[in-house]
Design a protein around this nucleic acid. Structure first.
Length: 665
DNA sequence: ACCGGCCAGATTTTT
DNA sequence: TCTGGCCGGT
């Protein structure tokens, strides 16, 4: 125990030992937040204040939850168990919803719809209603629904922020979407949170159960919580709802960068108003970066108004100044950054490729860097972009598995009824859907039609019946089969990989590799599952809520990612590129209040990027940049003016087009 | 059923 | 400028 506390500084100690009552920990970048959180959990367990199932620890990513669990296990070192309920909001909610299914509108195990499933469903509704997709864009509906769900609204509630274009049709669509989701036995990400919230709100017995169970609640990245998550936590923790009030939230308002997704920075700013007895602890010492980097970042963020009063400082060395690269154009910028990396590698032998990160505002910017890195034969890796579980082939096999578990899932049904191609064309599907008319379960309707055919005959009927028989057979087998076995059955009987092999293209080859990776994902799941037979529900849930599988064993490489993607990471050498007005900060709009709010979020993004750097930070900008085919004259980001001049070394590479550019124009 | 051309859209995306 | 999705032709 003394060991546990001895390695902490005094505010960290305070945050760990203040176990009772509401606690707000304002944890600046690199201030040892995870160390504090894991120590606190271990402290609760080691002092006997709580047992493993009496702690609820919520994070935003699986990665964060995993790391936290590993560290708690290491600290406890066999003296106790890590909390059972340690995970993302969504995984905790899924667990509760499965357990309390009796209170919910689901008749069977529900499946989770991701954004693209959701999009497909909305699109099919718009189509079934014969609305013009140009006028009533499914994307706009989807965005509006998700935003409203972040605010814990339901169909029928008054709504504001819905775009003019779709306003009139919106209530009807939301109603239809809501009903369709229930018919499909499906739940979307937003609904997982709001449904859990409403469950706790409306059922006192359920609420009391979880309030009694969770003696201590910890929430990481509190600045990124939305209204629905806030309400959910309130119903678990707030004394006015019967909660114990032992809630510890940890966050940094200066790192709130998901406002556009419904995160409400007010949650952290107003915590003390919410819980008047709250104690506040500030972790202000940064252990990560040089003083120069911390000072510069602090000066930038000081321009924001929406923040708490907290000052980050570093006791590391002063370090080198920030290097500002002024480039004539975007190509030059990329080339120059690659040259700098080569020079740094040559100069510092303790550095390897993975010590470098190139951070940009948008994925589209990665292209030029890739080009020059490839040319220089430097290994690099793009973090983010198209995610593993969003790939077509993975979504296809997932759709098979989902359909076997829950045949009411019309999105999965439509996705795979002709994948791989089995001669069931668009005409057939349109006919079936028109007759079904979006009422009730598509699968049930389909089966009825198969038994007493009225719409189809001959070859088409035969093919459809074969499909039905195949799915039904798997449905009966699923209870006695492990997920790998079912997966192989599906792949074999549909000849999915066989078809890809016949194609023989580079792309199909890559798809096969991804499916092999998916096979590994299943095997890993089965390894950590005691009795893997009949565990399809658990598997699908773990995948639906999962982040990309760890791609281990790869060589060290330079990391390319967006500013959003770098949160929580650190690198000795960081390049923030494209620091130009309009790109970063990227602020659009006409309402001054909106512009101001967005600008503050961009500034927080800048702060997040800067504080990733441990030793050396580069910030680059170009005078000319090709954007969607046009050459634009770009102004340096206003953030440069916010950094004291003595902390920056400017390297001016001129304002004219670089020579090769001039030649090619 | 498949291919090709045309048009719209193009920040960020923890789940 | 580049891409992905959709429609219409074979």
């Amino acid at each position: 125990m003394t060991d546990l506390l001895a390695s902490l500084n005094s505010p960290q100690q305070e945050a760990v030992t203040t176990t009772e009552g509401p606690l707000l920990v304002l944890a600046g970048a690199g201030s040892g937040k995870t160390k504090m959180l894991t120590s606190r959990i271990a402290y609760l367990i080691q002092t006997g204040r709580a047992r493993a199932h009496e702690i609820l620890a919520v994070t935003f990513t699986n990665k964060a939850a995993r790391e936290m669990r590993e560290r708690v296990v290491r600290i406890l070192d066999g003296t106790g168990f890590a909390p059972y309920d340690m995970g993302t909001f969504h995984s905790i909610c899924a667990k509760i919803l499965r357990k309390e299914a009796a209170y919910l509108p689901f008749t069977k195990p529900f499946v989770i719809y991701d954004d693209s499933d959701q999009h497909t469903l909305i699109k099919s509704i718009v189509k079934a209603k014969n609305w013009d997709e140009k006028l009533y864009s499914p994307k706009a509906f989807q965005y509006a629904i998700n935003r409203l769900k972040c605010d814990a609204r339901e169909p029928g509630d008054p709504f504001a922020q819905v775009s003019r274009m779709i306003e009139r049709k919106f209530p009807e669509l939301w109603e239809a979407y809501h009903r369709a989701m229930i018919d499909n036995n499906a739940i979307d990400f937003g609904e997982m949170i709001t449904m859990t919230y409403r469950l706790l709100r409306d059922h006192e017995d359920v609420r009391a159960f979880y309030q009694r169970r969770y003696k201590y609640i910890l929430v990481d990245e509190y600045q990124d919580t939305n209204r629905a998550q806030y309400l959910l936590l309130s119903h678990l923790a707030k004394p006015e709802f019967g909660g114990r009030g032992n809630i510890c939230v940890v966050g940094d308002e200066d790192q709130s960068i998901y406002g556009w997704r419904g995160a409400d920075i007010k949650n952290i700013l107003d915590f003390e108003k919410d819980y008047p007895s709250a104690k506040v602890v500030k972790l202000e010492q940064n252990y990560r970066s040089t003083q120069t980097i911390v000072n510069a970042a602090s000066h930038v963020i000081a321009n924001n108004l929406e923040r708490k009063n907290k000052t980050l400082y570093s006791r590391e060395s002063i370090g080198d100044p920030i290097i500002r690269l002024q480039c004539p154009d975007d190509r030059f910028e990329a080339e120059q950054v690659v040259k700098e990396i080569q020079a740094q590698l040559a100069e510092h032998h303790d550095l390897s490729f993975h010590d470098f990160a190139i951070l940009y505002r948008t994925h589209a910017q990665s292209r030029l860097f890739e080009e020059f890195l490839r040319q220089a034969k430097l290994p690099y890796k793009i973090v983010g972009g198209l995610r593993f579980f969003d790939r077509k082939e993975i979504k296809d096999v997932m759709a098979y598995l989902k359909l076997v578990l829950n045949p009411d899932d019309s999105v999965s049904f439509r996705r795979i009824i002709n994948v791989p191609a089995r001669g069931i064309g668009k005409t057939t599907l349109d006919k079936l859907e028109a007759a079904w008319g979006q009422k009730g379960s598509l699968w049930t309707f389909f089966c009825k039609e198969m038994d007493q055919p009225t719409l189809f005959a001959g070859k088409t009927l035969k093919k459809l019946q074969q499909f039905r028989d195949m799915i039904e057979r798997w449905m009966t087998e699923v209870a006695v089969m492990s997920v790998v076995d079912l997966y192989h059955k599906i792949i074999d009987e549909t000849n999915y990989i066989g078809d890809l092999r016949n194609e023989g293209s580079d792309e199909s080859h890559e798809r096969i590799e991804n499916l092999e990776e998916f096979n590994t994902v299943i095997l890993e799941f089965e390894e950590r599952t005691e009795d893997p037979v009949g565990k399809l529900t658990d598997f699908l849930e773990s995948v639906s809520l999962a982040d990309a599988p760890e791609t281990d064993g790869q060589q060290s490489s330079i990391q390319l990612m967006t500013f959003h993607g770098c949160k929580g990471l650190e690198f000795p050498m960081v390049f923030m590129v494209g620091c130009e007005e309009g790109l970063f900060p990227s602020v659009k709009g006409d309402d001054d209040r909106v512009i101001e709010r967005e600008l503050e979020e961009e500034r927080r993004l800048c702060y997040v990027g800067m504080t990733r750097a441990r030793r050396l930070l580069y910030m680059s900008h170009a005078a000319f940049r090709r954007v969607w085919g046009n050459m634009l004259y770009q102004y340096p980001a206003r953030f440069f003016n916010e950094i004291p001049a003595n902390l920056v070394q400017v390297r001016d590479h001129g304002r004219e087009y670089s020579t090769d550019r001039v030649r090619s124009i």
